[in-house]
Write a protein that binds this DNA or RNA. Structure first.
Lengths: 215, 215
DNA sequence: CGTTGTATTGAATAGTTTCAAGGTGCGTGG
DNA sequence: CCACGCACCTTGAAACTATTCAATACAACG
């Protein structure tokens, strides 16, 4: 999406000749932590979980990628994280070398991707504040607000916000146990701020939800 | 440092004509969160604290910059964080526009900075794992090991590792209170893994310290 | 030599985790 | 079509870790 805005129309064709559209289903690994970092991916449909595993089994979910997001643009030898499809996912896959050469011949495009990386860095640092300094309730509210915002930027406003990730995934994203994540979601529902529905939630009182993230 | 390796020698002069060397002393703000993002800085001496403030007074220290590190390279309108000198600090200050134009005329340099941003992103995501999934003791050990490694990469091996930041800063970096940070440092000293000295620490048993960060 | 900012330590408290049990939804195979 | 298994979710009670509140110690500095 936003990437293509930086590419001249006649260059889009060239970029597309580099791409291999690929599909994944629920739970399939797009790439693995520690594996060789050979490709760059652009998500075109579905939700992708990014996580890193500690040796003793503890896990940190680093983020959830939505359509338009790039995976694996950092130029490291090995993947720092695993990327896993949550439900059906489509990606465009670019061989790293070809992608790298392509963007480095096009300063405007490189600049655009550079800026996107900077934004991702800002997001990561915001996430630090969430993990380091917020209560369980604030973390869950923050997750729902930011995921919903991103979701609606892509799919438009909707009554129900789908949550294709498990409570375990949400907990591992927010630095909480799955039980604590579940309890806080239940609490938001008990307080009539959200409604829990199958496979997602509905936001009943947006103002109160947002206010929990801002205090 | 690492930046200059990417610049041809005759171009270094040009880059230097853009730079304003500037000094700061203990506690001075290099730039403020929310202020206009007008300059890029390269630290040449001292330690800089990067932090973001929540409206209710809670604070997250996002990192500590050492000589060679860049500040403010992400291309946002406003600063996401404040940068504060911990002791005497020297920086090279580049007007954003001039710096931006300069690097975008030099693909090799842009690529280098792009890669540095990618590394910073990886660091930020490692930090998430620390904040989300590690105990107080592991966090403090992690901080001491990584800060020491960076310090010694610049200054060479040394008996005493200076810690120019306060316990409050360390706590706010690790998502702990200053008391918990202090207690864990005391515990490491009691266990004869480190020694606490004025303005810093000495590592007595490096293996045990590192093993606390890896489990 | 008192003042100020920083650090250490103790005791009580609060919030999250752990452990455990039970519930729900869904796909599969009898 | 229903029963079963499986994965996920919810909820409760006990345990634990880090926080809060408070007192004291220490170091730097005018």
């Amino acid at each position: 999406m936003s990437l293509c805005a930086a590419v001249k129309k006649d260059e889009i064709k060239n970029l597309e000749t580099l791409a291999w559209p690929t599909c994944f289903t629920q739970g399939q690994a797009i790439y693995m932590q520690g594996g060789p970092n050979r490709c760059v991916y652009n998500v075109t449909a579905g939700v992708v979980r990014l996580d890193s595993q500690l040796s003793d089994g503890r896990r940190q979910v680093v983020g959830f990628a939505l359509p338009g997001d790039f995976l694996g643009i950092s130029m490291t030898e090995k993947n720092a994280f695993s990327a896993t499809a949550l439900g059906d996912v489509m990606v465009c896959r670019f061989p790293r070398e070809a992608f790298s050469n392509f963007i480095h011949e096009r300063p405007a495009l490189l600049r655009r991707i550079y800026e996107m990386t900077g934004q991702e860095l800002n997001l990561a640092q915001e996430q630090m504040t969430v993990l380091g300094r917020r209560t369980a309730e604030e973390r869950v509210a923050y997750f729902l607000v930011t995921f919903r915002k991103r979701w609606e930027a892509i799919n438009g406003p909707a009554l129900t916000l789908p949550l294709p990730m498990t409570r375990q995934d949400i907990g591992d994203y927010l630095g909480l146990t799955l039980e604590t994540a579940s309890r806080q979601i239940s609490k938001l529902a008990r307080d009539k701020i959200i409604r829990v529905v199958s496979g997602g939630i509905q936001v009943i009182n947006e103002n109160r939800l947002v206010s929990l993230t801002e205090q």
